[in-house]
Design a protein around this nucleic acid. Structure first.
Length: 287
DNA sequence: CGCAGTCAAGGAGAG
DNA sequence: CTCTCCTTGACTGCG
């Protein structure tokens, strides 16, 4: 099923986000950690297939410090074969992968150095996905406002054009919970012809005039970040099935890919999948 | 071994 | 001005 979770699996205690402190940086540390992330990634993918999960978000620490100035390690060469093999498996099994670089990627910052580092960060994500030769998306937010939203958007558009083609091909814009809602993202995405990842909880906190069904039918094959929480923006610790099933019933006709951003990760995904399957089984029995 | 403090990095908003 | 929160917790020194 196309319900996934990000980065970490607590059941099998595996993470694609193993890292280390900058103070213990060394060639060997980088090599070891990347190897660990690759190994854990394999374990997670196998767990996922056993459990009918075909969607996963790869952690942005997969190559730790990859865009940092001190970084000096030819991971592309050293891990090319392993990464191609991983990629082949992902293609064959038709697994969909996304990545979501952190809050430090601010493409529309007025600070040129922040922009430069953001581009560098996005570029290694794209390079990794290219080496794996898979159709992975890289999702980011628009960024800050800096006192004037229109010029912030204009700056986003200008800086987008500076991105290497391999980044642009994969970039997906996501609505955030305070500054850029779905309608802002839609407008920018139409200017730039980028993909969109729709975050349902951000939409609840920072709504636009569009209804859920309008949004789902607008997005050709919707990829959705799904989470829930209270009115203060605190995330729930586990899936609230009633809410989710209500959303799922509306969205199912659009065949969305749904990323659960929920603290207990795969546990919530399994709850949801098992529930949906048992409902389908019941339906078949009674039809 | 478990825990608390800290970690490369940006920006907004609350207080 | 300082703190907190956000992508995504994870590392590590200390007891």
């Amino acid at each position: 099923m196309n319900i996934g979770y990000p980065c970490v699996n607590y059941t099998i205690k595996r993470s694609t986000n193993n890292t280390f402190r900058l103070s213990s940086y060394s060639h060997n540390k980088v090599r070891e950690t990347i190897q660990k992330n690759i190994d854990h990634f394999w374990d997670i993918l196998r767990f996922n297939l056993d459990n009918d999960i075909y969607f996963f978000r790869l952690g942005s620490q997969f190559i730790p410090f990859a865009s940092h100035d001190v970084f000096d390690f030819n991971w592309q060469h050293e891990f090319r074969d392993q990464l191609s093999e991983l990629g082949r498996f992902i293609r064959e099994q038709k697994i969909f992968i996304t990545m979501h670089p952190g809050q430090y990627v601010v493409l529309n910052s007025p600070n040129e150095d922040v922009v430069r580092r953001s581009i560098k960060e996005l570029d290694w994500h794209a390079e990794l996905l290219d080496i794996m030769n898979i159709d992975g998306w890289i999702q980011i937010h628009i960024g800050g406002i800096f006192g004037d939203k229109q010029s912030a958007i204009q700056r986003f558009i200008e800086n987008y054009r500076r991105l290497p083609a391999r980044v642009r091909r994969r970039l997906a814009l996501e609505n955030d919970d305070r500054l850029y809602n779905f309608s802002d993202v839609k407008q920018i995405s139409e200017r730039l012809n980028t993909k969109i990842i729709f975050d349902i909880y951000h939409h609840k906190l920072n709504p636009s005039e569009h209804s859920l069904e309008e949004i789902l039918s607008y997005l050709k094959s919707p990829v959705i970040d799904y989470s829930s929480g209270d009115k203060y923006g605190r995330h729930h610790d586990t899936i609230h099935l009633d809410d989710f099933l209500e959303f799922y019933t509306v969205s199912e006709p659009y065949q969305p890919k749904i990323m659960f951003e929920i603290k207990d990760k795969e546990k919530s995904v399994l709850k949801a999948i098992n529930h949906i399957k048992s409902k389908k089984t019941l339906k078949t029995l009674f039809d």
